[in-house]
Structure formats: structure tokens, C-alpha cells
Write a protein that binds this DNA or RNA. Structure first.
Lengths: 242, 242
DNA sequence: TACGTATCATGACTTATGTCATCGACCGAA
DNA sequence: TTCGGTCGATGACATAAGTCATGATACGTA
């Protein structure tokens, strides 16, 4: 849900955490281009529940996730919606419509408070023309995303809700998991069960029940939004059977 | 199923139908690069049922679909498998693993007899380094494919088998549909019901039943693998409701 | 604090889809 | 031709997951 808030005034101050950019596609930028980037970038912090852009919006440029978590969501006419992708720190949103010169085909919805750097389409196209490396980096990234999308498509199509939940927990482990000294894994689920349901193509009730079932089988232990996994191998093993 | 056949000797003769390449990413190649392409390209015709590469294979280069239809399929340990993408005339297979320098993560399986042009990884990387335009074209294409993958993910997650079948028929219309002078649409389904099931994440029996149901409702008329649609608008309209 | 709202859990019930089995049609190979 | 195989249609049945309804709890806000 989008909360109605007075529009915040975007900051023109270049993000301080630009170091993240060097670890991503943006690492390909030259010094001059970085200056241009910093000149044109518009940064803004979004709170949980806000939308960055909405399905159907004109694509005005690229959104770089400096920090936070964003869900890319598609909504049907009848109101059903699915989260087709998550964007983490370092990810970039909106290059498909930018390249295709189309409108946005999905809504970007902030799950956790997120800091976004926006770079307008004109400048971005300039970068892509002048710096082939940048395009190559984006190509690699997009190819990777395509692989992940195909992976998820397969999961949604063929696996039970229970198994899809386990996949999701394992997926979220990369960004939201910590391992204690005794080997216990804790995953801090960053989203509601409703969002989890939208990610795996199921209903919230089914997610609730599946989580309980998995807990009853002793594979995980839930407290609030934190999942404790004592035996990660057992959890992963189940993915190989079902 | 893969039929065991004696390995065919690939032809080194450059494809005659190179014109298709100019309408695709390959149109970005310069004259010199085209010569290099033609020097290194290896062409081969695959029959229905053959595989071009298998999940886990090392990625030796790119496969360009000169003509025909190829299914990109992922298989689980338990034997279940899903078609995650179709590759038509003009599509290119294998650039994700090429860029990521990974092994193939899916199997490319020929549905209709297909003519493939293979270009080795080394030459391909040379092209990508020397010709930025080519990379940009691939970026656009990949971004488009990502959008389509997300679209399908959404469909599989949220829609009934019946609706997914209709989506599939509408999808196949682009390549396998013809419209007669009186406005009737004929779509010649290029694949078996089993493959259709693998595309939409369902069982062949469910596909069979769904097709019959849709026919019983008068939306389509089946004869063999040909779908006749008298009122396309009605078919498309159903997509907007369910 | 108290209120309203969203979230989560859970039971009862429905339904879509998967599963298993059978049968006929078709098709290529011997 | 006849055989063996795949494909498609269909029935009977099982079951996973959706739907609807109800409370309990937690959470943010007035």
C-alpha cells in the first residue's frame, strides 16, 4: 500500500556511498563521466510502502538502489499482483523500458527504506553511447537477471508452496542471513508474509501454513520475522527431492 | 526425447540466409566483421527432438537460430522439466553463459527442424570488444527477453491453466498464426501438448482438458494442431477478466 | 492509554489441478 | 502389413492450494 505523504524534495547532493557504484556496472565510468553523473544525479530516500515508479509511467531514467530493498511488481486488471523481482543494494531499475523507449511495465515498490540515485534518460543514453564498457556491464547484469528469472519461473511452475518457501528463504539468506559461530543460520525475513506470497505465487494463508509445516518438521524455527535454521544442509537437501 | 543419430558433419559454408542477421543484433556488424563471421561460422541443421546443448555443458560459443524453433528447457533432479523460453528465427542462444563464462544452465531442444549458425566464444568476444553497437543490440534484446520472462512468471503464478493456454495461443500467434480474408485466425501449434504443458507449468492432461473446455465455450475450434479462432476479440477479452 | 488497522494463525470448506489408468488414433520402423 | 511407441482424450480419484470466516496479536497513531 502506498501511504499518502507530502512529496519529499529530492536531494541534488551526490550520494556519499558512491563506492557501491564502483562494485557494479557503474565501475566502468571514467572520471569525467563520474563527474557528469554526480552533476546530474538526483538522490532521494523512500520509505517502506512508497512507490518509485508505477506500471504505465513514462520511463524518465534509471534508478540505482544505493541501499535498501525494492520489489518489482506486476498487477493484473483484477487486482492480483506478483513480485517478479527484488532489487537489492547495487541493483539498477528501469533499464528495460529505457532501452526499449517504452513505459514502465512494472511497479517498483519499496519494501525496506531505500536510498535511490536517479539518473535521467538523456544522460544515461549519453553514457551508453560514449562508454561501451558500461553497456557490456549492463549486458552481463541483465543476462544474469534473465537466468534468475528463468530459474524462478521453473520453481513457480513445478514446485509445491512448501518448497518454494524454502527456496525463498535460501534466496534471502544471501542478503539477510547471518551465521553464528556454532553454525546456526538466522535469516531475517525483510518482508511480510503477504509479500512472500506475492513472490512465490501463492496466498498469504498458504505461506503461513507452509511455514508452520516446515517448522513442525523441525527444519526451521520461527520467531517473528526471524528464521532460525539449525541444520542448513537438511533444508537444502529437501530442495533436491521435491 | 533425444533420438540417437549418427553425428552430422557440420557445414562450414556460411549460411545463405544471412539476411536474417541484418534484421537482428548481427546487423551491427561491419563488413570486415561479417567476413570474419562467415569465416568462423559453423552451420548445422538439427531435426526435431535433437538437442543443441545440454544443461551443464561448457559454453563454447553462441548459437544463432537461422530458422526453426528451439525450446530452452530446465530439468530438475526428479525429472520434472519446464520450458523457460522459446527461441525463434533470429534469436540467439547461449549468451548468458558466454558472458558469465559459466556452463549452460539449460538445455536447448529442437522442436521444429532448425538451422543453427554457431560462432565460437573467442570470435564472439572479439566482436563484443571491437563493436560496441553489437553489445548494445544484445543488451536491448536481453532486456526484452527479461521483460517477457517476468511476464510469463506472472502468468504462471497467478492465472489458471485455461487462461495460461489462451496466453500461449496468443503468444504463438505472432509466429504461427495466419489471418484469412474474413478475419478468422488460424494458429498452427508447433509443439505437442506435452511441450505446451511444460511451457505453462501444467500437466498434459490438464492442457488437453483446458483446450476442450475452451473449445466447448466456442472460443476456439481445434482440428489436429491447428487452432481456429473465429472471434479473436472474445479470446483476448477473456485474458482481461481472469 | 485506547483505538483502528494490518498481520498472522487457524479451522472448515471448495475447487482446480495433479495422478493414475485406460483406450483409440496415429506414425514410423521392421 | 504388423508391431511398438508416442500422442491425445477421458474417467475416477486424490490432494494441494485457494477461499472464506474468525480471532489473536502486534503496531502505529491520535
Amino acid at each position: 500500500m502506498v501511504k499518502d505523504k507530502p512529496p519529499e524534495h529530492p536531494s541534488k547532493i551526490p550520494c556519499q556511498k558512491a563506492r557501491y557504484r564502483t562494485e557494479t556496472e557503474w565501475g566502468a565510468l571514467t572520471r569525467d563521466e563520474i563527474n557528469l553523473f554526480d552533476r546530474d544525479v538526483v538522490c532521494k530516500t523512500y520509505c517502506s510502502g512508497e512507490t518509485i515508479f508505477v506500471e504505465g509511467d513514462a520511463c524518465k531514467g534509471l534508478y540505482f538502489v544505493e541501499h535498501g530493498l525494492v520489489a518489482v511488481r506486476k498487477t493484473e486488471i483484477n487486482g492480483q499482483s506478483t513480485i517478479v523481482r527484488l532489487a537489492y543494494q547495487g541493483d539498477t531499475l528501469g533499464y528495460r523500458p529505457l532501452l526499449a523507449k517504452e513505459n514502465h511495465r512494472a511497479t517498483a515498490e519499496v519494501i525496506n527504506d531505500t536510498h535511490i540515485c536517479f539518473i535521467n534518460a538523456k544522460t544515461m543514453r549519453h553514457f551508453l553511447r560514449s562508454n561501451p564498457k558500461l553497456g557490456m556491464r549492463f549486458l552481463e547484469h541483465t543476462a544474469l537477471a534473465l537466468g534468475q528469472a528463468e530459474e524462478r519461473m521453473f520453481q513457480i511452475a513445478a514446485l509445491s508452496v512448501r518448497t518454494r518457501i524454502i527456496h525463498l528463504v535460501v534466496l534471502l539468506r544471501d542478503h539477510y542471513g547471518t551465521i553464528t559461530s556454532d553454525g546456526t543460520l538466522f535469516v531475517d525475513l525483510p518482508m511480510s508474509q503477504r509479500d512472500m506470497a506475492d513472490m512465490i505465487g501463492a496466498r498469504p494463508e498458504s505461506v503461513s501454513r507452509a511455514l508452520r509445516d516446515i517448522q513442525d518438521d523441525g527444519l526451521i524455527h520461527l520467531s517473528g520475522h526471524t528464521v532460525r535454521v539449525d541444520r542448513v544442509d537438511r533444508l537444502v537437501e529437501e530442495l533436491h527431492h521435491h
